[in-house]
Write a protein that binds this DNA or RNA. Structure first.
Lengths: 168, 168
DNA sequence: ACGGTTTGGTTGTAGCGTCAACTAAAGCCT
DNA sequence: AGGCTTTAGTTGACGCTACAACCAAACCGT
């Protein structure tokens, strides 16, 4: 199988993208840990719950939203439970399912963490871009995401037209 | 402190970028593990060595190129050594330093892994973009990277054109 | 040349994520 | 009703990474 290698433009764009992908998670994680004692993933879990009806989600749906395996989510939610940021209880309609609900303490934690997080998002990415570039980034991600996420597991997050069956 | 929240365009672009950042490493990792038995990080370490003079680098420099702590690199290079893909030896000029050199087996491994990896890069990202978008991505990353990498730790990767071989 | 500091790297420990195995409830078929 | 399959989630063991402590070589001022 003969390989189409990358030309100079492609190679440069790719390496820069890889650098961003490599550095961005660490930047977000560092700020959140320092200022709020949360990993980025933990913050994201709490943020998803904070936007859900009743601040409650089934584990499976929460896993889809956060791109986590059920195993990972089970471990993380147990720790968040032990820290009093969420609580878990068996779903009344389906005895197999577990619901995770944000506690008042968890809500306060998200509310306090959000400004600093948004500030980091601005400082590292958005404020560095012109409005045109924000639009271009939008379009580039739209072109790439169907290939990265063919099953549209994360579509609820990035596609406004996605069916948001979060409520059930 | 007043928070400048994200407007709709910013929020949409941000969520899409986050989805890409979340999904891309997994996609690369899955393909490389399946086809070559390497994590993406291990592949990247071998690729950096493959382009270095004598296929040899000091641990510290290799750590900079791969954005890894020395601790992480020490563990990974020990495993790669045990698998016979690299070898380590004390640097003659500086007794403190350790040099890592790609073995012939390591070289063969990289050469075998590269086409599939480049194929994945094309399939997931580059082939989804128009040439204009590749240029835009280039510019967007250029705007963002000084903020993500103020110390220019990874600048060698994304700034100057590097030796044009396998290093994607 | 010698004591303190800095630099380069390794090791131990603990936390997080993954894989495989498991439990339990729900659905389905007859 | 009884039994098989599917779905939801948890648990335990193991691998990888970060943090801290550590060791050794090189550097530096006196």
């Amino acid at each position: 199988m003969d390989t189409r290698w990358l030309d100079d433009d492609e190679r440069a764009a790719w390496l820069k993208l890889m650098a961003v992908v490599e550095l961005l998670p660490g930047a977000l994680d560092t700020q959140l840990r320092r200022d709020s004692g949360l990993s980025h993933f933990e913050y994201f879990v709490l943020a998803m719950l904070s936007e859900a009806p009743e601040r409650t989600l089934r584990m499976t749906q929460l896993g889809r939203l956060t791109n986590a395996t059920l195993t990972r989510l089970s471990h993380v939610s147990r720790r968040l439970d032990e820290r009093g940021l969420i609580e878990r209880f068996q779903c009344p309609e389906d005895g197999r399912a577990t619901n995770a609900r944000l506690t008042e303490k968890g809500w306060q934690t998200v509310v306090q963490a959000a400004p600093g997080h948004v500030g980091t998002v601005r400082a590292t990415v958005l404020d560095a871009l012109t409005p045109e570039q924000v639009g271009q980034l939008h379009a580039i991600a739209d072109a790439v995401l169907p290939r990265l996420d063919p099953d549209r597991r994360l579509a609820v997050l990035y596609d406004e037209t996605a069916p948001s069956d979060i409520a059930s």
